[in-house]
Amino acid sequence: MACGSTSLWAGEATWFCCGNAWGSCGSAGTGACGTCQSSKHMAAWPNLSAACYDITRPDLCGEGMPRRTCGAVMNVKHQCSGATVCVTLADCGPRTKSFCGEATCCNGACRTNRVIDLTPSAFSAIGSLSSGKLPVYIYE
């Protein structure tokens, strides 16, 4: 499946590590899909499954996000710069409900709520890891 250009969602992107690597990702393993690796362009989606949705609960922040399952691909675009990366879903996350209302902006235009988590490889392709979060548009 190729990365498309149909609008899907918008919000904040954060990053996480996975794949039995160094640091705190040793305990994370290869994620809910069993395929996640920090060095690949992958992502975590809050509605990967019903069990996942129960943990992330984006609906509590008003984000009725659609179900997308392991292996689905998405284009994630930095709202400020237009830099884009194509990612494959490999895990459940982020915990949207814990940060309801949090906003990240570009020159006054803000995106609210954490809607996607990117691997370091994907996040660093469109921003700096030390920034922690980015405002993004998501296409499929």
Partner: peptide, 11 residues
Amino acid sequence: DAVWVNIVNVY
């Protein structure tokens, strides 16, 4: 271009 050493971002 950039290296991030020991960086982690955990919930």
